[in-house]
């Protein structure tokens, strides 16, 4: 009984300390996105919320088990000089403990399936249903081995490049962007349809979507901060599905800019003759 009380008190105290530490970690980053880092888009904020919530859920579970292991090693160990006898308590069943364990593990799992998962997914799905009234920017993304090609049909830009001739992605802040994702090779000499699975990932935006040859997929998100690859290297397009030898280098720079700066850039790109 004394062990149980001691263990219970320690568990509660350490868990509270843990929760305090985790909260401090989460709040250490701007806008409370903590250790998730990729929260520069509306979808990233949903993921960051889920991540933070799960951290809070995981702390007491982690503390319970680890404390139990350490506690047992200290309290229940046969110390030097003691006779190594059999344990006195030989209970093989404890219905209360088993009952609480089973019910708690079912409840925790249903909770986290419902709350950060299903509720977060609802928000993700809702964000995908973008209407014309929101004036989404449409970006056609073509993945080929090994290059990202961005074109802006609304602005007459067939391949956006920067001054060095590298592919670049410019996005206006706070405006929904609809990425239309396809994997094929427009420059292939005889078999343009054959390409491989890539994954369109912007780590800073906290989301990725696979680009599958033979299919057209879309991803709608809204960048929420003005930033760029130069300012934060997490904000870059990076291929996240192994696509062959060039995979590590399949990346492109991203610039999230104000609406007026975007309009200016688009004009210059379209006039650039591309």
């Amino acid at each position: 009984m004394a062990n149980m009380v001691l263990f219970g008190v320690l568990w509660i105290v350490i868990s509270l300390l843990g929760e305090w530490g985790v909260t401090a970690w989460i709040n250490s980053a701007p806008n409370g996105t903590g250790p998730y880092f990729g929260s520069f888009s509306n979808l990233g904020i949903i993921g960051a919320g889920a991540f933070d919530f799960l951290l809070w859920v995981a702390v007491p579970i982690f503390v319970f088990v680890v404390l139990m292991l350490v506690f047992a090693m200290i309290r229940f160990r046969v110390k030097k000089g003691e006779t190594p006898d059999e344990a006195k308590n030989q209970s093989r069943v404890n219905k209360t403990f088993i009952g609480i364990w089973v019910v708690a593990s079912i409840l925790v799992n249903i909770l986290i399936w419902l709350h950060p998962n299903a509720s977060g997914l609802e928000q993700v799905f809702a964000a995908q249903k973008v209407t014309a009234k929101q004036h989404p920017l449409i970006v056609d993304v073509t993945a080929r081995q090994w290059e990202w090609i961005f074109s802006y049909p609304q602005y007459g830009i067939s391949q956006a490049v920067n001054s060095q001739g590298d592919d670049v992605l410019y996005l206006p802040v706070n405006r929904p962007v609809k990425f239309v994702l396809q994997s094929f090779d427009p420059f292939h000499t005889y078999d343009y349809q054959v390409d491989v699975i890539h994954s369109f990932w912007i780590p800073g935006f906290g989301v990725k979507q696979d680009v599958v040859p033979g299919e057209t997929r879309t991803l709608v998100l809204t960048p929420t901060q003005i930033t760029s690859t130069e300012k934060n290297p997490m904000v870059r397009v990076q291929c996240a599905e192994d696509c062959g030898p060039g995979h590590p280098y399949m990346e492109a720079n991203v610039h999230v800019v104000s609406a007026s700066a975007f309009a200016q850039w688009a004009k210059a790109q379209a006039a650039g003759g591309s």
């Binding site: 979808l43 990233g44 993921g47 889920a50 579970i61 950060p116 977060g120």
Partner: peptide, 19 residues
């Protein structure tokens, strides 16, 4: 197992997958 909770959460998985 506990990090599995994060990976099993679909919104977070879309970030964590393949990292």
């Amino acid at each position: 197992g506990l990090t599995g909770l994060f990976v099993a959460d679909v919104p977070a998985n879309l970030q964590l997958h393949n990292t």
